[in-house]
Design a protein around this nucleic acid. Sequence first.
RNA 1: GGCCGAGUAGCUCAGUCGGUUAGAGCAGCGGAAUCAUAAUCCGCGUGUCGGGGGUUCAAGUCCCUCCUCGGCUACCA
Length: 517
Amino acid sequence: MTDRPSYYVTTPIYYVNDVPHIGHAYTTLACDMLARFKRLDGYDVMFLTGTDEHGQKIERSAEKAGVDPQAFCDKVSSRFKELASAMNFSNDQFIRTTEDRHKKAVQHLWKVLEEKGYIYEDSYSGWYSVRDEAFYAEKELTEGEGGEKLAPTGAPVEWVEEPSYFFKLSAFEDKLLELYDTQEDFVMPKSRLNEVRSFVKGGLEDLSISRSSFKWGVPVPGQEGHVMYVWIDALANYLTAVGYPDERAEAYKTYWPANVHMVGKDILRFHAVYWPAFLMAADLPLPKRVFAHGWWTNEGQKISKSLGNVIDPFELIESYGLDPVRFFLMREVPFGNDGDFSRKSFVLRCNSELANGIGNLSQRTLSMIHKNCDGAIPQPAEFTSEDSKLLDDIAATLDVVRSHMDKQAFNFALEAIWSQASAADSYISVQEPWKLKKTDPERMNTVLYVLADAIRQIAIMAQAIMPESMDKLLSQMNVVERGFDQIGDGNRIASGTEIPKPEGVFPRFELPDEDEA
RNA sequence: GGCCGAGUAGCUCAGUCGGUUAGAGCAGCGGAAUCAUAAUCCGCGUGUCGGGGGUUCAAGUCCCUCCUCGGCUACCA
């Protein structure tokens, strides 16, 4: 336990029936940026991601692949770990629902819910599609050619009935509505809160939470033949990772309740309705926020496996390098909205803000220092009001960035940082250090010193989104202390530190041919 | 069908409690500069604020209506 404030951020656990794609990378990246930012800001951070490995689909996929389900999960799960490594994610843990600790946690949670009277046995029936592994309502069904019932997806359905345990979700309608009313930022963006609220207002049915038709899941305690069905299993991972059911565990006491559960908009309901209901039922504290982000389209087209236009994050990193990809994903779109990934906007964005922006700013500055100041950070004279204004504005930006980050407004956070890089470029034009070289070398030294410190602070703030590149840049300037406590006038860059001949941090990309798009 | 939201410059969007000539970034055009990855800086935006009607001294900003687009409308994650 430390006296630092704690911060717990989670991604959903990813279902191993799918290989990692841009959507997974995007969700986790958002969390990574947040986690890194909070660490730099002095927080004791817990950042969790992982994989969801149970269910009939997995059982079947494994069977098809001719391996046992665990081996199947091991393989796909490792692919997600590779993504985390390729994307330079700083997750503190990678949880898997097939781990023993998780099974124990979930079974304990189940027992608690049962003891408190929120679980009962009944039977579950409905039109079921094996192919989709989903139930459908009568009205959703269509008639096939032979008069057989078909799911909206076109898959055949059959009427099935099986014993199942239910969770009394219906008992939480009022409490949930109260939660949404009293804690308005429990679900963000706001428009999503409205959807969730109206969903709950429409009435809640109890939730089927076990299955006896397949085996690949966490066994229901004391009930031979039943395994837990999705949500209790999947959602409880957030508790498992911090030591639940040991509520006296150090990690639990430090991190629970979570600050942010980051989710795609497709699984918002489960996080914003079921999850708080489970926790209320178990008398556990509720997370502070569930944030639902949007989807990417590819060159304006909806992404789908059948269209074959899935964006492979590994491939993107291969073509453009990691940090430009990270930057683009967080910078391009107001977080929460859907966004379009196009090569053209990617190249334009990266060229204008990375290569021509912060990249060029640091290159021109460091190169002037290298050439004109004996290769070392110069000694400044007294600052003019323009010098102070530039540096003070940059320092003041940290608070602006903080407030955006606390609202998961990542694009605005980045915009705020980048506006300072642009201010530094304007400052150079006004000061014209290349002229001062002959007319007033002392003043030139001061200007270059101010610029070096401006870049130092900007780079420190930009570490959360581009850790590798900013590390390179800060290393070029021999800046060792890189936390946000270094922002401001108490910790200026040290004069006299030698700097090597600067190397560009961000390459410029070629625009794709117009006809291709 | 029901509920919710959006429609503002070529593109992406800001516009808080209605109040002076409706803003930003990108793209485009013009100029300056030459330290730098031909990067940078400065200047330039009359756009029926989706259409129509209404309230008001005053509406992008409130009300009504219509059009278009999107989201949600439960047990695949």
